[in-house]
Design a protein around this nucleic acid. Structure first.
Lengths: 396, 396
DNA sequence: CTCCTTTAGTTAGTACAATCAACTAATTAA
DNA sequence: TTAATTAGTTGATTGTACTAACTAAAGGAG
């Protein structure tokens, strides 16, 4: 617990006003005062400051309802830029992102096999290129990285694909570019991205995002703030053991982890292995040709074999979600990642599995949905976190 | 997000000073200023207020280290009283508790079979008696109740033993006694009690308390604050399914819940059932005579059958803890409840089970301990919550 | 013992952020 | 045209933490 000063009060109210402007495309000072319960005087003062900083501008005149017309304020979305990086796919993606999450430039470089120092060089290359294109004030660099990440110290503890171990990424990038850097786990980034830029969030609520791709991870938002855990790696649910007897060996060394039965990787493996026993399946009969796209196609066509193995994954995901809900009693669950391509049927199966796998009462009010920010959620989240950290916008 | 005012600043700093005095038996104004980083002036002002309110008094003169002697301040622990209730055992227990958690009066009434309205009358009876004995300013009533509790609205959703369903306990008690009331789930109460009155807590950290008794529940403290969840029933881990195939029927209707294999109840059941196959066991051979005390005795005497069934419970508890740690990455786990009578061996078995059941990295820094506040933790926690709610002390 | 230094605590005045009261400006409604 | 309403600003007020300078009381060097 730290002492409180006037400065904190001011920062807080300033953030509150900015957040209100961010949440409303166009809004007058008077309306901000009504929403925030600050006086019109205070709002005017704060607005004068943030207009002077270029963050906000007067964008027009509103309609009167029996009085002077309000002056509508609006966020200057390109008044600050950020660089966001998504290292979690087999190609590095970097983008210049503005305050509304619009991408002003995107660079993609395939990884094909690069790892360790090489991968880091690739990363520098992307950032170098993006930095050169930046012609607005730059807030910093936000990174969403795969694997085990200590997000508080910005260290990649273990990213198997990249062969990074205990890499102090925040430090490295800060030393090289001399701007603020925020490093998150990919699922945590997706969570904060979905919450900030997805539709239907008030800003104060809690949610758990489950990212089901190659691996499986979760991002936990509690009362509008990303929850990171003591060691900065909250949400590492991919290695929860869900098959207790005779589970497959996982890359982590244990048997029966969630990833071994419910990730996209696991699904593909299972399809390749099982297809020979189902000659009627419309999947390619050569296992090597089977990928997620093919499985998706077959699923859409109601192929029974594929239907079975896909819905089998949802059973396990539902189990873990119901465990999480039992522990946290969070009522909003968002699913993202490649596996969401199986849509409603998959979602419904997950929901059903949840209900049969734990105490019903707390689960009944829990909603499970598919995320709305799509493939950009990680980049957006990484940058949103950056903005949050410097309390310029969005939250305190 | 609410607006910030001067009042918030003041409340915050006042709470900060009070917390510092609470955490240090005797402390001078100057020392408080050093710890809190407030100026001596500000500390003096706040201290003047809280002395006027009788919460704190000047308790003596400290030793000088080359200057004027400091005046030592100390909490007046009996300046406020609270009533704490523990409804989670088969006897209702109520106590008058002071600001340091000292019990000034305790009343116990056996429940034997009373439930529904009867149980509520019993509760009123206890509180009536306690209220009559109170001769210091009373802050309120704190309740730790068993079963599913919505702690935000103070409603007992479902307490099987008491046959309470959707009972608005906070409302009822407030209407009857006209003082603040806080209702918590028993495990949540134990968690906040352990954190406030247990040794070795700085006040800002996170911890998960696991309460293993008749049933099993958890209380989650995040950054020093009890985490209650969207529906106010976070920590309901007793009905996480841990036996996937052929698990026993649980009172919740599902099969294979944690409670069916790891609670004290489950252990007793298993002992009674199995003892006939182990004639060498030193347990009473009449199953009806077997209770937790007998099992504890046999365990201490290294009875192999008992050892096996006791350590079997730890396997499942370890699994669930490792799931929780995977999700939350909280590094301090506290175990309380009847089952802690099996001490170190049980604890070690839990720890071992954890390490084999999930990703090791985050688990390596996780410590598992047995709680220190004992049987009073629920009453203490219920009252501590009360104090927190009114931000008089401890935290905000 | 004297004087300097250090520490505790207080006092008087200052800075600053939100507030209040009263104002101007601009519109609707009667 | 006038009254009422709403938006936004201005100047004075308030409350809280801060600064600087004070008094009080102790230790230490000579």
């Amino acid at each position: 617990m730290e002492k409180a000063t006037r400065q904190h009060t001011k920062d807080h109210n300033r953030a509150l006003v900015l957040k209100t402007i961010f949440a409303n495309n166009q809004i007058s000072r008077a309306e901000i005062a009504r929403i925030t319960k600050l006086t019109r005087t205070t709002v005017s003062n704060i607005v004068a400051d943030i207009i002077a900083e270029g963050l906000v501008h007067e964008a027009g005149i509103g309609t009167s309802y029996g009085g002077k017309n309000p002056i509508l304020l609006s966020l200057v979305e390109d008044s600050r830029w950020m660089i966001g990086l998504d290292l979690s796919h087999n190609q590095f993606r970097g983008a210049i992102v503005n305050l509304r999450g619009a991408m002003r430039d995107v660079i993609t470089i395939p990884m094909d096999g690069h790892d360790g120092e090489d991968a880091l060089k690739l990363l520098y290359q992307i950032v170098d290129q993006l930095v050169n294109k930046v012609n607005h004030p730059l807030l910093g660099i936000g990174v969403g990285a795969p694997g085990l990440v200590n997000t508080q110290e910005g260290i990649i503890i273990n990213a198997v694909n990249l062969d990074w171990k205990n890499l102090p990424l925040t430090q490295l990038l800060q030393d090289r570019y001399h701007i603020p850097v925020s490093v998150l786990n990919d699922s945590q980034a997706a969570a904060i991205g979905e919450k900030t830029f997805g539709a239907g969030y008030s800003g104060e609520e809690s949610m758990v995002l489950i990212n089901v791709r190659h691996g499986i991870g979760a991002g936990i938002v509690i009362n509008g703030t990303l929850y990171q855990g003591d060691g900065g790696c909250a949400g590492e649910i991919g290695h929860i053991v869900v098959v207790q007897e005779g589970g497959e060996l996982c890359r982590c060394g244990n048997h029966g982890c969630l990833e071994t039965v419910a990730s996209a990787q696991a699904l593909i493996r299972k399809a390749r292995k099982g297809v020979k026993d189902f000659p009627d399946s419309i999947l390619p009969h050569d296992p090597a040709l089977i990928d997620l796209k093919e499985i998706e196609k077959a699923f859409a066509a109601n192929d029974p074999f594929v239907r079975d193995i896909v819905l089998d994954t949802s059973k396990y995901i539902g189990m873990v979600i119901s465990d999480i809900v039992s522990v946290l009693n969070i009522q909003k669950i968002i699913l993202v990642g490649d596996m969401t391509c199986f849509g409603e049927p998959w979602l419904n199966a997950i929901h059903e599995s949840m209900l049969t796998h734990s105490l019903q009462k707390p689960l009944l009010n829990t909603k499970v949905e598919i995320g709305k920010t799509g493939e950009n959620s990680i980049i957006l989240g990484a940058t949103a976190m950056l903005v949050n950290n410097y309390s310029l916008l969005f939250s305190h």
